[in-house]
Design a protein around this nucleic acid. Sequence first.
DNA 1: GTAAAGTCTATACCTAGTATAGAGTCAACA
DNA 2: TGTTGACTCTATACTAGGTATAGACTTTAC
Lengths: 129, 129
Amino acid sequence: MKIGELSKKSGCSIQTIRFYEKQDLFEACNRSEGNYRIYDASSLRALRFIKQCRSLDLTIIEIKQLLDTKNNPDKSCSSVNNLIHQHMVDVTHRIAELEELKLTLSEMASACTDNRKVKECGVLQLLEE
Amino acid sequence: MKIGELSKKSGCSIQTIRFYEKQDLFEACNRSEGNYRIYDASSLRALRFIKQCRSLDLTIIEIKQLLDTKNNPDKSCSSVNNLIHQHMVDVTHRIAELEELKLTLSEMASACTDNRKVKECGVLQLLEE
DNA sequence: GTAAAGTCTATACCTAGTATAGAGTCAACA
DNA sequence: TGTTGACTCTATACTAGGTATAGACTTTAC
C-alpha cells in the first residue's frame, strides 16, 4: 500500500509518517519504481504501536527506547515498567499544577463578574499585583 | 538599571527579557551611550505583569491583547473576563484529558507488576493492541 | 493525450523560550 | 595606563512534535 492508504488506516497524517521515518522511529520502507513508499501490514502494526505510545504522551526518544527494548525479547522488561511508572508520576504532578492554575483562574474570574470599564476591571487589578 | 538587575528583580532571565522585547510584548527601552538597555521602575512593573500572565499560561498573543485593552481604560473589560473564562474552560478540559491518561497508564502499569522478560511484558502487549 | 489525484523532497513555520559565539563596554585594581 | 573580569550586545541555532507550503514528478482515469 502507498502512504495515503497507510495514513488513512493508521490515522497518522502523511507528513507525520514521513516525519517519523526521518526521526528513525519508523523504518524506511521499500520504494516503487517511481520512488513511492510501499508499505505492508507490518508497517501498519509498527505505526499503530507508535501512535499508541504517543497517545500516552511518550516522547519520540522514549518510543525509540521501547522499540529498542522490544528487539531484545529475552532481556528484563523493567525499563518498560519504569517508563510507564515515571510517566504516571509526571502526569499526576502536571494535574496538580493545573488544578492549582484552575483555582487561581477561578479566583481571578470572580474578581470581575459584572461588566466594568477596563480601568475598574478586577481581573486586571489582580494581574497588576 | 541595566538588564542584569532587572532580570534579578523580575525573575525573568536576561534572554527572556530580550525575547519579550523582540516579540513587541515589552517596550524597547532607552539605551546608554554604550548601547546598554536602561530600565526604570515602570519597566519592572510591566515585566511583572507579563510574568503574572505567563504564570496563568496566557500566550504571548493573549498578553498583547490584554496590554492593548489596558491602553483603553474607558472601554468595556468583557474581553478580559472572557479570556480568563475561556482559559478556565481549557484548563478544565486539559485536566480531564490528563485524568484519563493517568487511568490508562495505571491500567497499563498493573498489566506487568513483576519483573518479566521483554517478550512476556504485559505493558508491551497492551501497547501492541 | 491530458487532467486530476497522489506522491516526492526540501524548506519554513509554530511556541516560548534557551544556549551559544564573537564582539563590545565598563569598573576596579596594579 | 594596562589589563582583568564581569557585564552586555547582536545574531544565530536549537528544543518537540509535528504542520504547511512550493515545485517537481508519477500514476490513474477518461
